[in-house]
């Protein structure tokens, strides 16, 4: 009798857990676009936001695209996600990790000329952690070193 009650409780708790997890997964799925912190360039290209709406644009700063304009303060660069590219203009102080070939999130508005006017830049870094001394080696050397230390 006691064993039966225990099984009944177990079944009830498992059913409740499955229901809660299902509800959570459903909510996360429904939120998948709203909960995103930024749009990637291909989303901006497919569905451009209204010119005056504040949005965030995130992607990689394309190598070789970073230029300082004639006034010496404004910078221009291109953010890409491999499928689309959006030119960005920004005037202000950039975070210390803002470099070409790395991730960036720009807060601002889409201009009528197709350029994104950023009010603020955030640097986004990736999941790789590489010691500074190893960066100057060639990729093959770095792999050797990693292998040796493992």
């Amino acid at each position: 009798m006691a064993v039966k009650a225990k099984h009944q409780r177990l079944v009830l708790v498992v059913i409740a857990l499955v229901a809660i997890l299902g509800a959570g997964a459903l909510a996360a799925w429904a939120l998948r676009s709203q909960a995103s912190y930024f749009y990637v360039p291909s989303e901006i290209a497919a569905k451009p936001p209204e010119p005056d709406r504040a949005v965030r644009l995130g992607g990689m700063v394309e190598r070789g695209s970073l230029k300082t304009e004639a006034d010496g303060v404004t910078i221009a660069f291109v953010v890409g996600d491999g499928k689309a590219r959006v030119p960005v203009r920004f005037k202000g102080i950039t975070p210390s990790l803002f470099v070409e070939g790395s991730g960036v999130v720009a807060e601002g508005r889409m201009g009528a000329d197709g350029t994104f006017n950023a009010d603020n830049l955030l640097a986004k870094h990736d999941e790789r952690y590489v010691p500074r001394e190893m960066k100057d080696m060639t990729a093959a050397q770095a792999r050797e070193t990693v292998k040796e230390t493992q």
């Binding site: 303060v73 202000g92 102080i93 210390s96 803002f98």
Partner: peptide, 8 residues
Amino acid sequence: MRETLDPW
């Protein structure tokens, strides 16, 4: 202009 902070 690049921000310079003391990481330490």
